[in-house]
Design a binder for these strands. Structure first.
Lengths: 217, 217
DNA sequence: GTTAGTTTTAAACGTATGTTTTAAACAGAT
DNA sequence: ATCTGTTTAAAACATACGTTTAAAACTAAC
């Protein structure tokens, strides 16, 4: 047995979810791609919802754990720069590197994660968002706490909004990465990688974090 | 007859699409909310796909038309600032104001638009993206051309990526606006409007547009 | 008032989906 | 080798969906 049924399902589901979204991909396409019987999903994961949760947990579990470690290491580090924007890039780099390390070559994982965030914030009810917050909120709150230090000249509410604007850059880029990379290759004959995109985004997010707050427009 | 069947369908579809997405909302929920017979959708719009197109056309048609006018007025205007970032805010403000003017109080319209962009870029095939580009690409290319002038220190490819990072801010904020506004009200007892969010985003996008390009991280 | 064209209605159709069921195949322990 | 619990397999189930049909209701012109 090269790989277990469970792993083959998770891998196939991850790829399909990343490419077509959660509701758009059926269990039948997943199970045929995984070369597994249809009923296997409900046997091992209970339901489609359980499968989605398992796929995302496989990424978010290690990610939040690694993030916790890396952030506390960053917090204890002494060689902080005086340049606030530089320091923002470093902090955002901790998150980016943690994502990359957990995704480990697998370009689907980040796309699934981005889709998850997207759907979580697109639901008016917000059940998924509450679940994510309850399950993995601690690590991300920690990250936000450190980020907050480098964005001092705003109220908590202003920080809330600004944070989600930054999140938008990341989520949109990752969930659209497949299409964007394809366009980029066709239009500019340039073969980029997800890692390069991540590196590309960091200074953009850092600048966006420091943008002035203007009342009018 | 207070409002025609077609308009009632469009209004109901717009609200449901904005709240739950295109695939997640059924024709039955739309027609019951519109107090219209189920078959009316297929009679008037041919198919669900036709309905989606009609909903988005109702927004994108006027928007691109208005944008075309406003942008050429902007291009001809003489009181340009020497401050590049300020000028970026003005140009982005043209887009924002056009969106607001066309959306006209209807907070669903912008959310549907954002969802459309999101799904267009989330499809690996990209049929929807090509359709939008073919139908409404001219106005947005015009906008990009003007934007390009204020982001000179990068290659065309770098501009391509940067543009989509900016797009991410807008799309995520708009498609998540309902959830974000709800959280904001609950957490900070602050009643914001979509217009305020738009005004809030402009300087962030302007700063992000001018962020430096760093090779490493 | 009749007629021709349009719109609305109720019902049914075909299909795709997630899920369940029941039995068979398998694995490891005794 | 037998037994026990676990996993796989094929089939069926129930439901929700988009779509189509055919008749009824409506509208406006003659």
């Amino acid at each position: 047995m090269t790989s277990s049924t469970i792993d083959r399902i998770l891998d196939a589901a991850e790829a399909e979810f990343a490419a077509h979204g959660f509701v758009e991909t059926s269990l039948r396409t997943i199970t045929t791609k995984a070369k597994v019987n249809l009923a296997a999903v409900n046997y091992h994961f209970g339901s489609k919802k359980g499968l989605i949760q398992a796929v995302t947990d496989r990424f978010l579990g290690p990610l939040t754990h690694l993030l916790q470690v890396q952030l506390s290491a960053y917090e204890k580090s002494t060689n902080k720069s005086d340049d606030n924007e530089q320091e923002l890039r470093v902090l955002l780099g901790v998150l980016a590197r943690s994502c990359q390390q957990v995704a480990q070559q697998n370009h689907h994982r980040l796309a699934v994660f981005a889709r998850l965030i997207n759907t979580a914030y697109s639901q008016s009810q917000g059940h998924l968002r509450k679940h994510l917050n309850h399950q993995y909120g601690a690590s991300f709150l920690y990250f936000m706490k450190l980020l907050r230090k480098h964005m001092p000249v705003m109220t908590n509410e202003q920080f809330f909004w600004r944070f989600h604007y930054l999140l938008g850059i990341l989520v949109f880029s990752l969930s659209s990465s497949e299409a964007l990379l394809a366009i980029c290759e066709r239009e500019y004959a340039s073969n980029r990688s997800l890692d390069q995109i991540m590196a590309d985004i960091l200074p953009v997010m850092a600048s966006a974090a420091q943008a002035p707050i203007l009342g009018d427009f």
